[in-house]
Simulated scan of single mutants.
Amino acid sequence: MNELYAVVGNPISHSKSPRIHSLFAAQTGEPVEYTAIQAPLDGFAETVREFFAKGGKGLNVTVPFKEQAWQLADRRSERAEKAGAANTLYQDSQGRLVADNTDGAGLVTDLKVNAGITLAGRRVLVLGAGGAVRGVLGPLLAEQPGELVIANRTVAKAQGLASLFRDEAGPAELRACGFGAVNGAFDVIINGTSASLQGDLPPLPATVITPATVVYDMMYAAGDTPFNEWARAQGAGKVLDGLGMLVQQAAESFRIWRGVEPQTVPVIEELRNH
C-alpha cells in the first residue's frame, strides 16, 4: 500500500513537487504516492486536518501558506522556529503536528555539494528580506561566512532580520543595508527577491560582481532568470538558479518522512532536460 503525501498551495498546478517526489519514490522503492492539493485561501487549516484525518503521512507547504503552517503546528523544529515559516509537516507518534523548514538546508546543500561552493570565510550578499530569505539565513550563517550582508529596498526589514539572527552569526559579521549602500565585491550573491522574475532588478552597483563571484537566484526559469542574465552581463564567474534548491529541499523533506536519502543529481538533471 502506498502512503499518501502532498504539496499544498494556492495556486498549485505549476508545482514540480509531485514529479520530484515520484522520481524519489521510483529511485528508492519507497511506497510513496504524492499529489498536489489546492487549498482555498481561507481554508488551509481545514485542508491540513482533513489530509491527516484521512491517513495522510506528510505535507509540503508552499506559497501562500508557509506562515500558517508554522502557526498551526503543535511542535516546531529549531530551524522552523527561527524561520517563522514551515514547508514540511508531519505527525509524531503522539499525533501532534510537527513543522519543519527544509528551504535553507536545500539551498546550502545545492551550493556546497552540487555546485562545490565554499561558504566558510566568504563575503556573502543576500538580497531581499522577506520570508524566503528569513527561511535560509540560519543554515547560511551555520556555514560561518566571514561576512553576510542582507540588502533590501526597505532597510528596516533587513535590519530586523539581522537582529533576529545576530545570535546565530558567531564570528561572522552580519550587516543590513539598502541596495544603494552595498559596496565592494562579493564572493557569493544570493537573490531572494521574487521581483526580478518580473524583470524588476535590485538597483545594485555592478562592482559587487567580479569574475570570481558566484551568483545564485533562489527563483528558477526555463532559461536564465532576469537577475542571472544581469549577473552574467557583469561578468559573474558562476551563475546558478534555484532548481537545485527546490530538489534538495524536497529531498530533505523525503528524508524526514521516510528516513531515506534520495539521490538528487539525477532528478535535477531530469527536470532540467525535460
Rank of each mutant, 00 (worst) to 15 (best):
Q27F: 00
T118C: 04
S77G: 11
R49L: 05
R49M: 05
P31M: 09
A69W: 04
N114M: 03
G146L: 13
E50M: 02
A45P: 02
R75E: 14
Q38N: 04
K112D: 11
R79W: 11
A120W: 08
S93F: 13
V124Q: 03
N101T: 02
L41T: 06
L141H: 14
E81Q: 13
L111Q: 07
A26R: 14
R75M: 12
V126T: 06
V98R: 09
V136Q: 12
K82R: 14
N87E: 08
P145F: 13
A69P: 08
Q38P: 00
G135Q: 02
G95L: 05
P31A: 13
R75Q: 15
D42T: 00
W70G: 02
V61F: 12
G130D: 05
E147K: 13
L141D: 14
G29H: 14
D42Q: 07
Y34E: 01
L127S: 02
R75W: 08
E143K: 08
I37P: 02
R134H: 01
G55Q: 04
K57P: 09
D100C: 07
L107I: 05
D74H: 14
K112W: 12
V136T: 09
Q68W: 05
A132M: 04
T28N: 14
T47I: 03
K54Y: 07
A105Y: 06
N60F: 12
T118D: 08
G121Y: 05
D100V: 03
Q68L: 08
Q144V: 02
G146H: 13
L59M: 07
Q38F: 01
A80G: 07
R96C: 00
E30A: 15
P145W: 11
Q94C: 07
